[in-house]
Amino acid sequence: MEHLDIDHDGRTLRGALHLPATDTAAPAVALCHGFGGNRAEFGYTFVRLAERLAARGVAAYRFDFAGCGDSDGDFDDLTVSDQVAQAEAVLGALAAHPGVDPERLSLMGMSLGGLTAQLAAARFPVRSLALWAPAAGAVSMDGAAAKLRADAIAEHGYDDFGGLPVRQAFVEDAKGIDPFADAAAYPGPVLLAVGTEDFVLQGDLLAQYRGLYGDRLDLHVFDAVGHGFETVPARERLVELTASFLAASV
């Protein structure tokens, strides 16, 4: 593993690159963490996934989005469009790395990182796309939820989401994003994993993912777990199936 910093828009994005033990340039996957997370992800699943990919001959880059973890920036400035631009910058930096094959890049994301990855995949050529509980609903809230958020921001200056602030900049940016139409240009295979108790990815959104990716979608539904795949067996299955999918499709 080596530390790899990437400059983007006046900020340094900090991360760790896991390279396989090979003398040839390897395919690579960029791992995009969820809202308020960091490059280790819940239960250190990104660390385990990156190590498992490297053992299969695939490089993996775990990085902190701006304002998160060790990266520069202010969390208050977080928007989906900015994260998509960061993901594109990360892919560009990986393509320039001497240990990486620039023609064999892929994306993987959890929750808001999953939404980020699906949007970035439509803008930067990648071989494959893996999504854990992607948060399309973050930019397509129903009227009642949107009003609650607007009221909270009007009163406090932010909406409190699990102890982290969602600011008006995030809301304004979301208005210009269609999570499905804006992702439609990506032509490759997709793995999607979701728990039956997930409050973020409900049935109607899941149906839209099926419509978006069609027969290119490899869907895995995990019984009796929520948004964070909260059991040891579920997380082991999640890491293993994702590593296998990405190694086979890059």
Rank of each mutant, 00 (worst) to 15 (best):
M1P: 04
H3K: 15
H8E: 01
D9S: 14
T12F: 07
R14P: 01
R14A: 08
A16N: 12
H18I: 01
H18A: 11
L19F: 04
A21K: 14
T22I: 11
T22F: 05
D23N: 13
A26S: 15
L31G: 03
G36M: 05
G36H: 11
G37A: 11
G37S: 08
N38K: 07
N38G: 12
Y44L: 14
T45W: 09
T45R: 12
F46N: 03
R48S: 10
R56Y: 02
G57K: 03
G57M: 07
V58Y: 04
R62M: 06
D70G: 09
G73Q: 04
F75C: 10
F75K: 10
D76E: 15
Q83N: 11
A85T: 05
Q86V: 03
E88P: 06
G92M: 06
G92D: 12
H97Q: 08
H97I: 07
H97N: 09
H97D: 10
P98T: 03
V100E: 03
D101M: 09
P102Q: 05
G114Q: 02
G114K: 03
L115D: 01
L115F: 03
L115V: 03
L119K: 00
A122H: 02
R123Q: 10
F124V: 14
R127S: 11
S128P: 08
W132I: 03
A133Q: 02
A135C: 09
M141K: 14
D142V: 06
A144S: 11
A146W: 00
K147L: 15
K147H: 14
K147A: 13
I153C: 04
A154G: 12
G163Q: 10
Q168R: 14
A169H: 01
A169M: 08
F170W: 13
F170E: 02
D173M: 00
G176K: 10
G176S: 14
F180H: 10
A181F: 07
A183S: 15
A185R: 15
G188F: 02
L192S: 02
A193V: 09
T196A: 05
T196F: 12
L201Q: 06
Q202W: 10
L205F: 00
Q208R: 15
R210Q: 14
L212V: 04
G214M: 01
R216Q: 11
R216Y: 09
R216D: 06
D218E: 15
L219R: 11
G226N: 02
E230G: 04
T231Q: 08
T231Y: 07
V232Y: 12
A234I: 01
R235A: 10
R237N: 11
L241M: 13
V250A: 06
